[in-house]
Design a protein around this nucleic acid. Structure first.
Lengths: 346, 346
DNA sequence: TTGTAGGCGTTATCAG
DNA sequence: CTGATAACGCCTACAA
């Protein structure tokens, strides 16, 4: 019943023109205080709501930003989104969230739809199977900011917020060595993804820094799930000298590894120390809480949002900004041979 | 550079009028095949993209729907959202996701912003602390569909999709009794929320059906987190005759309960059977996998979306539709005294 | 200080 | 079948 009152309606009622109403509502200086107040009052009385669509059409800005992630119901991504929203919402932006299910085709579709919807910017984490960058260029050609977080596509003129995966891999491995482990193995994820490669480099870097030579037998590539952890452990246990510690690039794989090790009768952390990666919520709820690397997800989201805001302000577009956050090693029971009880649980 | 090509641009190029272009692009019957194909071709060549904003302004529909949840990074809610998106996305709708952090004020703000943005409908789960319904009425007055999922506010003319919490509580309790447990306790969440009250009623119903009288000592109200589970167990263990089973309205509380019971040296499921509620991801990853009640979240999202679509089609608005889904008891190790190994893990 | 007029990109109506 | 025109709701030169 209350259908859509416009500035014309309130203009008619006050016997003035719509332009005046518009000015009054927008705090335009060229207007008398009296009429402004009058307009304000009747606007409220008539329950006027500005039509953002018309505004967007006029101004060319929609006040919407698109956020694209592989999966929305992964705590990693949903926390990042939360960080983005925390920063953007108070500034009047809306966040349109889309998921690609890790397919390039959905990524392309999604970008098209967001561009159609005239979003003011796109913040995204690239799908695992994306090989081509023409859809990213389409965004750049539309003259709106494109920002990668976590997973980037290597190209110019795109700002990004990532974490230092090398550092994460290095810290985790060094921690295992510090615990007295002599033969640290690494279970890596899909090495087509830069992030997994970097974690692996970090692993190797820590070995080198400790004067330990890299043993290829101790590097396993696995599927990125619990099952993958089972298989990796099976493989490692067939070795003549099995390892005494595992750094996994994924919490799920680490969980699978722990399950299988326990099945085989090994004690953790006495026989095997294990560290995962991502700080998935379940890692702290496990009976034997799992050490892992936290990726400061909310902060990553916040930072990505701030980079967007900066970019939209300075339209120079030239400032290429690659922010890299530092991950945080979280030491829990699964790798805790030496530390005091009280530090353990964190 | 490629800035915004409109139907006028392509009309000019073809020396026809914009209206004709529009018709060609929209499969309007009154147009020759020749010009249609020509328009289509040059449109593609010029990389024309329809401006949805203009369309929205013209048609009065934005093709956006708002989804409001307390927290976006909870697996329960993000799975529901996924269900909503699965259904709405292929039909050309975009989903604008907002979170209230369980505050009424944010809920009000969010609804206002969504209405300003001219969304075509709002699907939401009501905040825990919402006491007032004037903002819901504002949605109804705007003549767009409002649909509650999971948590509803009791009012007329609003469709809702919930699960049968009574049934969930009933099934969980009955299962514990079937396992041979004699003294089943219930840890309930915040009883200001209808959903927790209903689970509690289900618990009582199952007792009654089994001819067991309700013992108020076995009903504990707790905070909705792990700590709450610790406290509840402490309280139960002070009783003269402690229970031998626990049905908790929350997985987190159940987890806390299990932790504390193990600390005290009790064996699960031999001494205590435990069932949680929600099927949080961690429940199946625990060393001792936890029985719980699955709330078919994705389906709930899908159903909410379908109710929206129906409502927007039949503008009669009169059909009040309260869909109730049936939750699914998932039996795992924490309550599995009797069943075969093979059924256990599910 | 206020009114007039034009335009943002589409589509719908009415002529032709 | 196609062209001209108005309209969606808002903002902003420009003119008064």
């Amino acid at each position: 019943m209350n259908d859509k009152v416009t500035i014309y309606d309130i203009a008619k009622k006050l016997d003035i023109t719509a332009a005046t109403v518009s000015r009054a509502l927008n705090d335009n200086p060229k207007i008398s205080k009296a009429t402004r107040l009058l307009v304000m009052k009747t606007a409220k009385a008539m329950n006027y709501k500005q039509n953002k669509l018309a505004l967007a059409l006029k101004s060319g800005k929609s006040n919407n930003v698109g956020v694209i992630v592989p999966y929305i119901n992964r705590s990693f991504f949903s926390s990042i989104i939360r960080g983005i929203e925390d920063e953007l919402y108070p500034r009047g932006y809306h966040v349109i969230i889309c998921q690609t299910h890790e397919t390039e085709q959905k990524e392309i579709d999604t970008i098209n739809t967001l561009l159609n919807a005239q979003v003011d910017g796109i913040l995204m984490s690239v799908s695992k199977f994306t090989t081509n960058n023409t859809h990213f260029n389409r965004v750049l050609n539309s003259n709106i900011p494109l920002i990668f977080f976590d997973r980037r596509f290597d190209m110019e003129n795109v700002n990004s917020v990532t974490i230092n995966d090398y550092q994460g891999g290095f810290d985790a491995t060094k921690h295992l060595l510090d615990q007295g482990c002599k033969r640290v193995a690494h279970i890596s994820g899909d090495t087509t993804l830069e992030i997994y490669r970097n974690r692996c480099h970090g692993y190797k870097g820590a070995l080198k820094a400790a004067g330990i030579s890299f043993n290829p037998d101790y590097l396993i590539k696995s599927k990125n799930d619990i099952e993958g952890g089972h298989q990796a452990v099976d493989e490692l246990l067939t070795l003549e000298t099995p390892p005494d510690a595992i750094f996994s690039s994924s919490d799920y794989v680490a969980l699978g590894a722990i399950q299988r090790l326990k099945e085989k009768g090994y004690k953790i952390p006495e026989d095997f120390c294990v560290v995962g990666f991502s700080n998935e919520p379940f890692t702290q709820f496990m009976e034997l809480s799992m050490s892992t690397v936290d990726q400061c997800t909310v902060e990553m989201g916040r930072t990505a949002a701030l980079v967007f805001l900066e970019q939209i302000k300075d339209n120079t577009m030239k400032i290429e900004k690659k922010v890299q956050l530092t991950p945080q090693l979280i030491i829990r029971e699964s790798s805790c041979k030496k530390l005091e009880k009280k530090i353990k649980k964190k």
